[in-house]
Design a protein around this nucleic acid. Sequence first.
DNA 1: TTGAATTAGTTTCACTTGAAACTAACATGG
DNA 2: CCATGTTAGTTTCAAGTGAAACTAATTCAA
Lengths: 159, 159
Amino acid sequence: MAEKGPEEVASLALERFVPYRLSVLANTVSRSIADEYAQRFGLTVPEWRTLAVLGRFAPLTASGVCARTAMDKVRVSRAVARLTSAGLLRRRTDAEDRRRVMLEMSGAGREVYRQIVPLALAREAELLAALSATEVKQLDCLIEKLQARVDSRTRVRTG
Amino acid sequence: MAEKGPEEVASLALERFVPYRLSVLANTVSRSIADEYAQRFGLTVPEWRTLAVLGRFAPLTASGVCARTAMDKVRVSRAVARLTSAGLLRRRTDAEDRRRVMLEMSGAGREVYRQIVPLALAREAELLAALSATEVKQLDCLIEKLQARVDSRTRVRTG
DNA sequence: TTGAATTAGTTTCACTTGAAACTAACATGG
DNA sequence: CCATGTTAGTTTCAAGTGAAACTAATTCAA
């Protein structure tokens, strides 16, 4: 990309480097949303993600949560432990296979979920308000393609 | 976005949720590059970022590194400490203001930099190979707009 | 059967992280 | 001057993290 003479050392403009920019953007976004989850609901990101997938796919096993949240089993295990002791989740050992723990939200969990979903959607909308409808579609498409790219490179680590 | 009847609770498809997707993408990308830096050079991401900005703007103070890497002063302080003890950086107390530490790469640091820059650029190119030239420009533009959006919302924390 | 291999989930441990407290040096108003 | 405030950078401490080790349950092969 950058031209360089015979004696010149290649240099790199960090502020133009896509991996860096993606990382900064994603962290800024995550951080600001995470702060709000923490303040209003006392939830961390792994906890919120766990609720999010249980809101759509309950009951799920812990590994089902892993598969749908891109979190490893250690994070899921801890998120589930905290949510359970906070009374937001119910755990039930599967009778079919007693290694498995079936997870679903309690009434209190559903109540938190009911409140947090519109908030999450509003934050997303607020972010995407920086873009036109066309750009939002472009973004969707670009993320999809880039993720497919890195997935094909990186061996998928299913905890 | 999602339709819902009077009794239905709003739900959220995590796999379509932009903040989540951005986070997963950025982390996958960062992780795969970080693994390579670690294997080949024994460098962490904060260390590499520090070298990257010193490669273009040396000499810099620690807070200059902060400003150009979006890292807080604690991270920079530690990255600088490790790089210095690895012999890749030279620290010199500024005579003008003895609180300040002027940083620049040592010969060994420049050698590592010289090797790591092409590798970083190659990894970026490999990622962007998933996209057409037009899409690369779109990506650039979208990241810019989204970052500007979150910067205007989030108070900038200059350590 | 039964013993080896596999799978689900938890715990341990060494490491990273960042807010807050801290140290040292500079600036400024009285 | 000197006391008060501010700035540069470091250290502390209480979390979060994930690889590896672990426990317990299931499957599979001989």
